[in-house]
Amino acid sequence: MTSPRTIRTAILLLASSAALAACASKAPKQLPPDPGANVSTNTAQEPVQGNTITPGSQADFVAQMMGQDTIYFDTDRYNIDSADMTALQAQAQWLAQYPGKRATVEGHADERGTREYNLALGERRANAAKNYLVSVGIDAARLSTVSYGKERPVALGSDEASWAKNRRAVTITID
């Protein structure tokens, strides 16, 4: 015969196991993109079909820009220089070719400085790029900005080469 104490212990063990099993974390269905990854929010169509890129997709934008989807800044600066103007003019030409497309300009900073300072600097960088695109004829309603500050570096490291790669504004097409 089993004693009431043994039964209570078994019930307590079963309840504890069930509670622990309920607390176990579940893996997410889809992982978020890597920091700095250029990801289109357009899920209506696949940008690459076979070996061809769909015209007007984020993949098409990146391919046409050949690295000019990103502009870089000096330390604590957000001014647009002549190299930036060339890249932004290429972006504007692509956006003019696809008037139904919208874009987000992401502002980034290097790891130095406070989180708040770098978010503000990233915002100024994104707005500088957006304002230039508007000045060459892109409707401001098609453009949005977001600042990631130092939160999404593309280069890890505490040296000038890494910092230079992280001081940037990146244009991502949407819709």
Rank of each mutant, 00 (worst) to 15 (best):
P55V: 10
N79M: 08
Y98L: 15
T104L: 15
D74Y: 12
L119F: 05
Q58T: 15
G100T: 03
G107Y: 13
P47N: 03
Q93F: 07
A129L: 02
D34Y: 11
M85E: 05
M85F: 06
I80E: 03
A37W: 04
G67S: 14
P32W: 13
A59E: 07
R125H: 12
L95K: 00
A141L: 09
V136A: 02
T70N: 00
A63R: 02
E106D: 07
G122H: 08
A141E: 00
Y78S: 14
E111D: 14
R124N: 03
A96V: 01
S40W: 09
N42Y: 14
T52D: 13
Q97L: 05
A140T: 03
A59P: 12
N127A: 06
P33N: 07
S82L: 09
E111S: 05
N38C: 08
A129F: 10
N42R: 05
F61L: 13
A83V: 12
T70V: 12
V62E: 09
E111M: 04
V48D: 09
A90F: 04
S135N: 02
A87R: 04
D69R: 01
V105P: 00
A129E: 02
Q45L: 02
V136I: 13
N127I: 07
L133Y: 02
T43P: 02
G67L: 05
T43G: 04
G50C: 08
Y98G: 04
G113D: 10
A120N: 15
I53F: 14
A83N: 13
S82Y: 07
G107A: 11
Q49F: 11
P33C: 10
T75P: 11
D76Y: 10
I138P: 01
D110N: 09
Q97Y: 07
T70Q: 05
A87Y: 04
T70C: 11
D81T: 03
T70L: 11
D69S: 13
G107L: 05
I53M: 08
M85D: 00
R102C: 15
S135D: 09
N131Y: 08
I80K: 13
Y72M: 11
E116N: 06
Q93S: 06
D69L: 08
A44P: 02
A109T: 10
A87L: 12
D74T: 14
S40R: 14
S40N: 10
N51K: 08
A59S: 15
I71H: 01
R102K: 05
S40Y: 08
A120Q: 04
M85A: 06
Q58R: 10
G56T: 00
T41W: 09
P35N: 12
T104W: 14
P32M: 06
I71Y: 15
A129C: 03
M66S: 14
Y78L: 07
K130W: 01
P32N: 02
Y132T: 00
V136M: 03
N51G: 10
G50F: 06
G36F: 04
D76Q: 01
A37C: 04
G67T: 09
P47R: 09
W94I: 01
D74P: 07
T75A: 12
A44L: 03
W94E: 00
F61P: 00
A87M: 15
R77Y: 11
E111P: 02
I53W: 03
V134E: 14
D60K: 05
D74C: 08
A120P: 14
A128H: 09
Q45T: 06
G56V: 06
A96G: 03
A59T: 13
V62C: 12
A128Y: 14
T54H: 12
Q64C: 03
G113N: 00
R124P: 12
R125C: 04
